[in-house]
Design a protein around this nucleic acid. Structure first.
Lengths: 299, 299
DNA sequence: ACATGTTTGTAAGAAATATTACATATGGTC
DNA sequence: GACCATATGTAATATTTCTTACAAACATGT
């Protein structure tokens, strides 16, 4: 037995016994409130006994009602996909326990969904506009999130001038903090157990009246109140090593938004930059960035 | 105390204690998966004790955590919140042409699937092993791919020594190219606006006998033959601005693989690095080793 | 009607989840 | 620095939720 919860429920409608069919049917019609149910509450509603619910769940391949709920949590659904077969294949492996990695896939997908939802919010629109119009845009991230900031910066630089990666190379953040607040904004990438720097930077920036956006994981608890916008990116994928990879998608969507905001006028710049790159054989010549060789070296 | 769950959570952020704020914050960030949580599971995630969760719920006017969930059920109403429903919702909008962004979602998902498929190949296993065992690991990327290389490097450095971001700051790549080939390997991130650098670096590295891995998009045509492994990441998402965001997922999966390969012995190192970070940056959250003169909160 | 296998319910027990009482820690105040 | 009030954790306890064992009901074929 395999497939999403919904699929399994549908499948069993054919063959199942009366009580089982009732249960399956009820769950299908109430799928989104199933997580709030308990085996007993559901049993009452459809007027069967509690063990019947448990047995039913087991009969369609779950360990228990609770297990079914657990799967529901991550279920991506049964819609035909562009990639359906391949995805299904991976998912089946994951469920069969053959492939521990694939288990993370669904979580990554749901994180992506979350990102795309973020991109529809008020805050998002506000940030995009700010990134498009503020003369000086700074992005920063420490430790493993540094690369994310770099991605945002590198891409934004294609579209506009005045974008910089902020770091502590100079010992303080004067570059941003001593600048004209009305001309600057800051995006911080942050994730759990990381630096105090991010927080203190946010505090100072707020103090200085500089708009701050925080992109972080669900565990960060200092953002609200300090940052003008907080975008929470799911990061738990049940891997041994947790991932903030979806922040890259977020950064990209932001850039896309800025592109749309700026409109055709960016094309001249993009062509110039492209030409410059090719002129220098792709030499990394971002004007505004100090290429920070120093702090990546362990040597 | 009244209002929706969301409102109450927001309201209490102002006044609540540290632990309570952490809980409220986490719930707000993950509202749609709260129904699947249990007081204990939530307590673990935010690292407080179970009774604290219960007390918190009571403090904002619910009878218990379960009671909060019950109310959440009402609040959520008919808003879609199972991942599958949310996904469906986005897809529908995309189809209706209301939401141009969402159109890219599906493509991003399929790119993710492609990544996870890559992670099952021979070549992948080989690369993981190499990244785990080669004394000197270099990663590089130019222009917009620089951040990807940085992500890989920053994360790998948590697990092992001898990982470096390679760049042209010094004017040549002697650091790698003049090193002992049997002790080094190279990962190149590359995409559409190819810099000639990447290719020439690959040529030289191959010449020198250094194993080369190329992570690139489907349009790159110079990889095979030059690189020992070529991983092709889909990059066309029908946005105005194309994305290599999934390379971050790839990098992360690689790191995860290396973690598994190295096994428990990395933990000592991870702790050391964590401690070092906390030594120099300070911690916001988890109390690592308390250095003589350290207290973290400035609140 | 009877035997057989399947389905379902009952009730007891096992596991999980949540609460309570109390001890310890923390932060602020004098 | 000692005190208080508040916040948090620990461990025992209560409660809810789930499972198991078994018996009753039901359908089906003879």
């Amino acid at each position: 037995m395999s497939g999403s919860v919904r699929e399994r429920l549908l499948a069993c409608l054919e063959t199942a016994s009366k009580a089982d069919r009732t249960i399956a049917n009820f769950m299908l019609s109430q799928l989104s409130s199933v997580p709030f149910e308990t085996a007993a509450s559901l049993a009452t509603k459809v007027e069967v006994s509690e063990p019947t619910v448990g047995r039913f769940c087991r009969s369609i391949g779950y360990k228990s009602f609770k297990d079914l709920k657990e799967h529901l949590k991550q279920d991506i659904g049964d819609k035909p996909w562009l990639v359906s077969d391949r995805l299904r294949d991976l998912r089946d492996r994951a469920k069969a326990g053959e492939d521990h990695l694939a288990a993370g896939l669904e979580l990554e997908i749901s994180a992506l969904v979350a990102i795309y939802e973020l991109a529809r919010t008020e805050e998002w629109a506000r940030l995009v506009k700010r990134l498009a119009t503020t003369p000086n845009v700074y992005a920063t991230g420490f430790q493993t999130e540094r690369g994310m900031a770099q991605i945002l910066v590198n891409q934004l630089q294609y579209l506009r001038d005045g974008v910089r990666l902020l770091d502590l190379a100079g010992g303080n953040f004067a570059e941003l903090l001593a600048s004209d607040a009305s001309q600057s904004c800051l995006v911080i990438f942050e994730a759990r157990r990381y630096s105090r720097l991010a927080r203190e930077l946010a505090i100072e920036a707020k103090e200085a009246g500089i708009p701050v956006t925080l992109v972080t994981d669900p565990f960060c608890d200092w953002g609200r109140g300090l940052a003008d916008e907080v975008f929470v990116v799911p990061t738990e994928f049940n891997q041994f090593w947790e991932s903030t990879a979806q922040m890259a998608s977020l950064a990209n969507l932001l850039v896309n938004g800025v592109f749309l905001e700026l409109g055709p006028k960016v094309e001249a710049r993009m062509e110039t930059i492209t030409r410059l790159y090719s002129r220098f054989n792709g030499y990394v010549g971002e004007p505004a960035i100090r290429t920070p060789k120093s702090e990546n070296e362990t040597t």
